[in-house]
Design a protein around this nucleic acid. Structure first.
Lengths: 276, 276
DNA sequence: TGTACAAAATTAGAAAAACTAATGTTATGC
DNA sequence: GCATAACATTAGTTTTTCTAATTTTGTACA
């Protein structure tokens, strides 16, 4: 019993009292005290077996729990708008995997309203959205502001200009965003503020389709410059700088207001805000 | 959580604090507190499963323990000298079984020294011995004093007498007990005290063999009267009363000095001392 | 049989843990 | 935004557990 006490880091007295308390609770002797060294009774052996079983089970639990914790702690679940771009995300993913090899990054692309829902329901740790909006549950970290430029087909008269003024857009066929998107409201406000009236010929809910329509000559648009790189390279689109430096698309990181962000999420955030 | 607290008979506060303490120990959240009603996290479910497992195992332990306790509490283990007699013991056994049907009586016959050892080692709860001797470990309860009479074959000259004096034994061929037995020492002392000298022709360690030898006419002996009933009935032996009323064989119950006697043992003791 | 020794039991009091009542905070539905 | 129910927090009390000191006990040995 003394050895047992030492093994548990308690005094001999505590061990003795504890054993007696267990015996009192079970109303059965665990040790035969008329022998030295002390001998376990049949009940004592049974109890020891029970205790060992419980400890075994606890160890098993801890192993599974640690695995679960690693999984929870080491995973970043990101919900992103499509227009962040697959290439951008895969670049981030590679860098994240290199820097934090024990962590995992899960990216899913979806429409903005579903991103907010995902974050709210804790289906995603972070959301990447344009024109981010905070609310009771949602908190916003500004990420970057994307320069907006005029998107025109190479055949367009503006394609040869190095810069355009808002007035240059007057009366143009325009391909816009759906009315329920923030970016649509922002562009409308911008055009109105500069007294520009465009001829809205189509509207879509995503940049990809708008770029296609512009490339096909259905009209012009105003899009984030960095989303057009590939089409510009391929000569399918031309981006013309607007002389209004305030026309940007803010992209932000949204997350649940109360939630404690885990190690991996923190690391990913560091990666995001470290390099813009 | 409030319901859980009520279920455990503790306050809501205690439950809340306890859960938080477990969470702190495991460094993992068990509940998703941003939802009402509270939801278990993956870790919480795992922990609940673990707890339920332990409780199940505890129940199992308790079932087995109760069975063991019933077995321990309800069993009397008696070690007896041969000369108590099988018939006497089976009569006791029957009565015990009738009065205490949930208890069990285990009787084993053995030589006196092994009886003391059995009691000392807790292999037997009670020992039945003649000329009982207390010691540091062993405690004695007097049980009964058996009348000693002269055992003679029917053909013997004393067989026709209703009573004999010690002097009648002078010069007789005598069949005694082995020298290491208490009864031998007691008989030697008795004979010496009465100035009797017998001719010791044989000695044995048990009454049964002595009775056989007497019946075969090898000599006479002095034996407990109640051990001769059957041989007397069968006309193989005759018991002659000695006019010395102090010649008795004391039979006692021995048990371990410190040991707490269980329910069944107590009951059996009551049966023994109640009827002599 | 007594004596020495080691180990367990006991005791009293200190330290730690668990608990409660009261109060503050939060998620949810209206 | 407000009401409500449930959980969290706080402060203080009760209960439990623990230690140090002492006594008792079982064993070995002279």
């Amino acid at each position: 019993m003394s050895k047992g006490a030492a093994h548990c880091g308690i005094s001999q007295s505590a061990a003795s009292q504890h054993v007696q308390e267990v015996e009192r609770r079970l109303t059965v002797a665990l040790f035969d005290r008329s022998k030295r060294p002390l001998e376990l009774t049949a009940a004592g052996k049974l109890y020891a077996e029970f205790c060992r079983d419980v400890l075994r089970r606890e160890e098993e639990f801890n192993v599974v729990l640690e695995a679960l914790k690693r999984q929870i702690e080491g995973t970043v679940r990101v919900a992103s708008i499509y227009s962040i771009g697959l290439s951008e995300m895969s670049r981030l993913q590679e860098e994240f995997a290199a820097r934090y090899p024990t962590s995992a990054l899960q990216v899913e692309f979806m429409r903005p309203d579903r991103i907010y829902d995902s974050v709210r329901d804790d289906a995603a740790d972070l959301g990447l959205v344009s024109y981010p909006e905070a609310s009771r549950d949602i908190m916003v970290l500004p990420w970057r502001e994307e320069l907006m430029q005029v998107a025109v087909p190479p055949s367009h008269r503006l394609a040869s200009q190095s810069e355009a003024t808002p007035a240059d857009l007057n009366g143009e066929n325009f391909i816009g965003f759906d009315e329920d998107l923030s970016i649509r409201r922002e562009l409308d406000r911008y055009l109105r503020a500069h007294g520009v009236v465009v001829h809205l010929v189509m509207h879509f809910d995503n940049i990809q389709t708008i770029k296609e329509a512009v490339a096909l000559g259905s009209g012009i648009s105003i899009l984030p410059e960095r989303t057009m790189h590939r089409e510009i390279e391929q000569g399918r689109l031309v981006a013309v700088r607007l002389d209004a430096p305030d026309l940007v698309r803010p992209v932000g990181i949204v997350h649940r207001r109360k939630k404690k962000l885990n190690r991996a999420v923190q690391a990913f955030l560091g990666l995001l805000v470290g390099r813009n």
